[in-house]
């Protein structure tokens, strides 16, 4: 089967004169229905990579294919954008109309969907992000987490196969962050939507079924979270943290304690510690 997204020798720079590539020779494929987290320190090229997925940026060299569409194919630009929804950091700067349901209707209106079907899509999208009761609210009365869910509903209404989120929780409080992550996971599990999520939060990255780590325009690590977070030294050398339980295990290992498994969550960590202590008795 052909992968849903594939980057083939993608290299990119913002202008000809720049001496260095912002993205250099990226080869990456992403399967349909997967949940991929992208990590990397500031300026490593994550947002630049994401913008290649719906032709906001076009490759300087190489190719990007999404669902069989070459992103350089201008004829299919709107087919592409409709398949790949994009959500950004600041929900305030993505919402176009004042009233919630009218904003959610913006994309299908642009696509020329008939009115009755727009209504259906809007109701469905609001339901999917659990915001139905706020249909008629003005967005400026909503919390950050709610606004971001409206922004997600706004791209959902295009019925995309994939949603790309660029640090969707960066401006939110812990509560809002939880709401948004829950929404994203549900969309992935229940609707089978492919998720590509850029994040700086390690506890969000471990929810993904694949983690891609970028540094200086290259992909340096790629695998399931357990595999990627077992490279603690490598992650630290590019200025990234690991989840706290992983860090604790790493420190214990460094102190000579015999631990084989990589752990990511608090529960796993507790279990390993429990077994260790049991073994000592």
């Amino acid at each position: 089967m052909k992968p849903f997204i594939s980057f083939e020798n993608l290299s990119f720079k913002y202008s000809e004169e720049e001496p260095r590539w912002v993205l250099e020779n990226i080869n990456l494929t992403i399967d349909d229905g997967s949940f991929v987290a992208v990590l990397g320190h500031n300026g490593s090229g994550k947002s630049t990579l994401a913008k290649h997925l719906n032709a906001i940026l076009l490759p300087t060299e190489g190719k990007v294919y999404v669902d069989g569409i070459d992103t350089c194919d201008e004829e299919k630009l709107f087919d592409l954008r409709q398949r790949v929804g994009m959500v950004f950091q600041n929900p305030d700067n993505q919402i176009v109309a004042t009233v919630v349901e009218e904003d959610v209707a913006f994309a299908p209106e642009n696509l020329g969907v008939p009115p009755a079907e727009i209504r259906e899509r809007v109701d469905w999208a609001l339901e999917a992000v659990s915001m139905t009761e706020y249909r008629e609210a003005a967005s400026y009365h909503l919390s950050g987490g709610q606004k971001q869910r409206i922004a997600i509903a706004g791209v959902l209404a295009m019925k995309p196969k994939c949603i790309v989120l660029d640090e969707p929780t960066a401006m939110l409080d812990p509560q809002g962050r939880k709401e948004v992550m829950k929404t994203i996971r549900e969309l992935n599990k229940n609707e089978g939507i492919t998720i590509v999520m850029i994040t700086h939060y390690m506890n969000e990255a471990i929810m993904a079924d694949r983690v891609v780590v970028m540094d200086e325009g290259h992909v340096i690590l790629d695998g399931d979270p357990y595999e990627v977070f077992s490279h603690v030294d490598e992650l630290k050398s590019v200025g990234l943290d690991v989840p706290q339980p992983t860090e604790l295990m790493y420190l214990l290992k460094g102190a000579g304690v015999d631990i084989e498994k990589t752990v990511l969550t608090d529960e796993e960590c507790a279990e390993v510690l429990y077994n260790l202590l049991e073994g000592q008795r």
Binding site: R81, G85, F88, N93, V96, F106, A107, L111, V155, M158
Partner: peptide, 9 residues
């Protein structure tokens, strides 16, 4: 950019 992403034309 957000409007473009939502197929505004």
């Amino acid at each position: 950019i957000a409007m473009e992403c939502r197929c505004y034309q």
